[in-house]
């Protein structure tokens, strides 16, 4: 049996990215960074969709707490078996940089969606 070379690295059925035409990850693969307002000016940042099989959440949270000087917890998400990282304050930029930085997770910026204002 020979393998069709063309189909090896590209998934022909993947959705095309609107702007570049490149294939883009399925929506469930996105990492969502969201912000919520608590009482007053206080906010909460949640990171949803990060693979907890692949990454050690305890280590990540430890790093976040120290680097961003905020408290944080891991919250189980009911609909999927993935967990959500929850941080105090608006850490969206910090988290985004952490995820995309070459020194840390080195993820593709296209797989991350930052929500909020």
């Amino acid at each position: 049996m020979s393998i069709i070379e063309n189909l090896k690295d590209k998934d022909p059925f993947a959705e095309a990215d609107d702007d570049s035409g490149e294939k883009v990850h399925k929506s469930q693969d996105y990492i969502h960074i969201r912000i919520q307002q608590r009482n007053g000016r206080k906010t909460l940042t949640t990171v949803q969709g990060l693979n907890n099989q692949k990454f050690n959440f305890d280590l990540i949270i430890k790093h976040f707490k120290k680097k961003f000087a905020c408290n944080g917890t891991i919250v189980p998400e009911s609909s999927t078996h993935k967990e959500v990282i929850q941080l105090q304050g608006d850490q969206r930029k910090n988290v985004y940089e952490f995820l995309t930085s070459k020194d840390f997770l080195n993820m593709d910026a296209k797989t991350i969606k930052v929500h909020g204002f």
Partner: peptide, 26 residues
């Protein structure tokens, strides 16, 4: 969904959003 909040519509079709938001943010 984006602001992570909820709210309602008032009598004169204005949107009441829970939380404090500035014009710039909206």
């Amino acid at each position: 969904a984006e602001l992570g909040t909820s709210g309602s519509v008032d009598g004169s079709k204005r949107l009441v959003i829970k939380g404090r938001f500035q014009q710039k943010q909206i």
